[in-house]
Design a protein around this nucleic acid. Sequence first.
DNA 1: AAGTGAACCTGAAGGC
DNA 2: TGCCTTCAGGTTCACT
Length: 297
Amino acid sequence: MPELPEVETVRRGLQPVMEGTRIVKVETRRPDLRFPLPERLVETLTGRHVTAIGRRAKYLMMHLEGGPVLICHLGMSGSFRIEEPDGSSTPGVFHHERSKLAAHDHVVFTVENGSGRPSRIVFNDPRRFGFMLLSDEASLDEHPMLAGLGTEPTGNALGGALISDLFRDRAMPLKAALLDQRLIAGVGNIYACEALWRAKLSPRRAAGSIAAKPGKTSQRAERLAKALREVIAEAIVAGGSSLRDHIRTDGSLGYFQHRFKVYDREGEPCPRYECSGVIARMMQGGRSTFYCPVCQR
DNA sequence: AAGTGAACCTGAAGGC
DNA sequence: TGCCTTCAGGTTCACT
């Protein structure tokens, strides 16, 4: 489910309910996700105030008073849902299920904002590829899961010049380069496909082939940088993509999936104006790549 | 270095 | 109805 836009959507959902609140209870309903849950998870979090909910690439960070940071990754199927207090005026679809937990609800946080009406934040992950790790504010950047991450594909940091520098002399296919979190961090299978279509670049092309010669600029690298920034930004505005299940913390759906141009559209005509191509699917590194063989070169 | 395949795990969808 | 295969938004590791 979650690439950068989905994780950012989750962050924005959690922020108003968690920031500034105190965690009054943490319940773990199994000992492990992808990794064993941190041994001291419950005792470290219980009773502490949440100071901020952050994000880096596809990682969520729950910052706690006094220094601890809970690093969360949603894997393929992880999600958080928020259960507002009974009688809250905030709309939520889970009021009636307040006392029930569903299959694959693995970690339950109860937070208290001072009104005397606690909310529950429930982490659900059927496939358990997600994980939670404890770190500390002071050493967060050096945490093994975060230290090697590349540039965020948001804002102005990612430009043609940087793409050129990152991709120069690399023989790996562009698609593989986009999925390499050490180069650009947060792009997954969907947005890699979509960005390459927008940039009219073949997923097969060697990454190094779009790099500018020293001292020059590369139109292809500029196009790819722009396509990445735009598709990520648009997806965040749309609340991410919801494919097989709900994504947003309030139970509503993101709607960017309706704007996919190539992803999961094998056999459909290429949506580009006056392109006669048909969207194709191939496997690269064990993942499906969707692309237009006609206009993506 | 690049490419492939497998592994982790569950569930949905499609074919028969 | 059931049984089987294939595939899925991520990451990592072993091997050619």
